[in-house]
């Protein structure tokens, strides 16, 4: 009796899970459908196949500029956040120091602050100091919100690191820098790359901070926001969204694969989300 009871609840749960996945993927599936649809309105029924909307993207100068700006911001934010995140993650995993809990907690705070608070909090000093808004101000904001993600990813990499390997290297007369470069870095490299990719993806998609802190040069999400008002631009936006979706999936698959390979190499059991929790 127990058995059959569990069977029906399992069946219902499976049905629910499938329905939920349909709900999750509904918008994502529509994106490529409309991107290749040969009509100027984003609505059903679909009228035919075209790649015109993708071709139109290359001819839009403002868009090409926005993509370039976004790439600059995302690369800079990813590199800076990963560097700062790595040193904090290493400090937390390897050393005991006074005030560790509060300091790490404060560094992780942007994870739970509403983005609009981070955005206006950064905007106020910039206005007061009379600084002009530029891509640099956006980068500063993105580094701030990317650091917690970087730490989350890298702390598992540093925790899994066997200290005796570094000690062995130091005992063998290798310098500190040499030890870092030849022992530590190769071992945490997959984590570092994974962090770079995740930070890059977050920055590329971040809207709220970019919206408040961007000057005349806009990033991609800010550009998309400005275009959503114009119905004729929508099919192009769908095409753009499709490309972004494809790019994000590729980056995420690579990041996830690297993270898992690193975890396997260090011999620790890693659930797919262990790093973020």
């Amino acid at each position: 009796m127990k058995r059959s009871g569990r069977g029906t609840s399992a069946r219902w749960l499976t049905i629910y899970a499938v329905a939920y996945m349909v709900f999750l993927y509904a918008p994502v599936v529509l994106l490529p459908l409309f991107a290749f649809n040969d009509a100027t309105v984003v609505a059903f029924p679909l009228s035919g196949f075209t790649t015109d909307w993708f071709a139109a993207l290359w001819r839009t100068e403002a868009l090409v500029d926005a993509v370039r700006n976004s790439l600059v911001v995302a690369v800079a934010a990813a590199v800076l956040a990963t560097t700062l995140g790595a040193s904090a993650a290493r400090a937390a995993a390897r050393y005991r120091f006074p005030g560790k809990g509060p300091v790490m907690g404060f560094i992780m705070l942007p994870l739970v602050l509403p983005e609009i608070i981070v955005a206006v909090a950064l905007l106020v000093p910039i206005m007061q100091l009379g600084l002009s808004l530029s891509l640099w101000t956006v980068i500063a904001g993105h580094v701030l919100i990317c650091i917690p993600f970087s730490i989350a990813i890298l702390s598992s990499a540093f925790q899994g690191l066997d200290i005796s390997l570094e000690e062995a290297s130091l005992d063998l007369e290798e310098s500190r820098w040499g030890t870092f470069r030849r022992v530590t870095l190769p071992l945490v490299m997959p984590g570092v790359i994974s962090s770079l990719l995740i930070c890059f993806t977050i920055s590329l998609d971040e809207f709220m901070i970019a919206f408040f802190l961007t000057g005349t040069e806009v990033t991609l999400p800010v550009y998309i926001w400005s275009q959503l008002r114009f119905p004729t631009k929508l099919p192009s936006i769908m095409a753009l969204g499709t490309l972004l979706l494809a790019l994000s999936i590729v980056l995420l698959v690579v990041a996830e694969w690297l993270r898992r390979r690193a975890a396997r190499r260090q011999g620790i059991e890693a659930s797919a989300i262990g790093g973020l929790m």
Partner: peptide, 21 residues
Amino acid sequence: EARSGLLLVGPTAIYAALMLA
């Protein structure tokens, strides 16, 4: 150990202090 830890977490903590606190 405390010094090494603080030195390592320093830049990130200073960044968070300047850009958030």
